[in-house]
Computed example of a mutant assay.
Amino acid sequence: MNIYNFDLNLLRVLDALLRERNVSRAAERLSLSQPAVSNALGRLRELLDDPLLVRAGRAMQPTPRALSLEAPIRDALQQIEHTLNAGDFFDPATSRQRFVIAVTDYVELICMPRLMAHLAQVAPGIQLAIEHLTPSLPAAALDDGQLDLVVGRFVEVPTRFHTRRWASETLQVALRSGHPHVGETLDLEAFLRLRHLWVHGGQTRGMVDQWLEEQGLSRDVAYTTPNYLQAAHIVARSDLAAVLPTQLARYFADLLPLRLFDLPFDLGSFRLDVVSVAQRERDAGLQWLIEQIVAVGAGAAQSSRSVD
Rank of each mutant, 00 (worst) to 15 (best):
G178F: 00
Q78C: 12
A167T: 12
T246S: 13
A129T: 08
Q230E: 14
P113N: 07
I290L: 07
S95Y: 00
L175G: 07
Q279E: 14
T134I: 06
A167V: 12
Q210Y: 10
A123L: 02
Q61Y: 10
F270E: 03
E291P: 03
D148M: 10
G297A: 00
N227K: 07
R237K: 12
T204A: 14
A140V: 10
M1P: 06
R96M: 04
E213V: 02
T163A: 15
P64W: 00
A231S: 02
L77M: 05
S31R: 12
V199E: 01
V151Y: 00
V221D: 00
D254S: 09
S306R: 10
W198F: 06
H196S: 04
R74G: 11
L128Y: 01
L244E: 02
S269E: 12
V182L: 06
V296E: 02
L263D: 00
A167M: 13
Y106G: 13
E28Q: 09
G268C: 03
V54S: 02
F252D: 05
I290Y: 02
R282E: 14
A278Q: 12
T185H: 14
A123K: 05
R193T: 10
L48A: 10
D187Q: 13
L258G: 05
T83R: 13
L171T: 06
L267Y: 04
V208M: 12
S304F: 01
R237V: 06
P257C: 07
L119F: 04
H162P: 11
A36T: 10
V274H: 00
L258I: 10
D209Y: 08
A66C: 09
R74L: 11
L128S: 00
L48P: 08
R164K: 15
L256G: 04
D254L: 11
R114I: 14
E28D: 09
C111R: 09
L128C: 04
Y251S: 06
Q61P: 07
E156G: 13
F99A: 07
Q210I: 13
A117C: 10
D209R: 15
R165A: 15
G125C: 02
P64N: 04
R160P: 12
R205N: 02
E156M: 11
H179S: 07
T94S: 09
R165S: 15
G183I: 09
A40Q: 09
Q302S: 12
L188H: 10
D220C: 11
D15Q: 09
N39M: 15
G285K: 04
V221A: 01
I80D: 15
S304G: 09
A253W: 02
L289G: 01
F261E: 00
V277I: 15
P35R: 03
S24P: 05
A139T: 08
F89I: 15
W166V: 14
D187V: 13
S24R: 08
P138A: 00
Q210H: 14
G152D: 08
G268M: 03
E28C: 07
R12P: 03
V103D: 05
R176G: 06
F252I: 10
R12Y: 11
V243W: 00
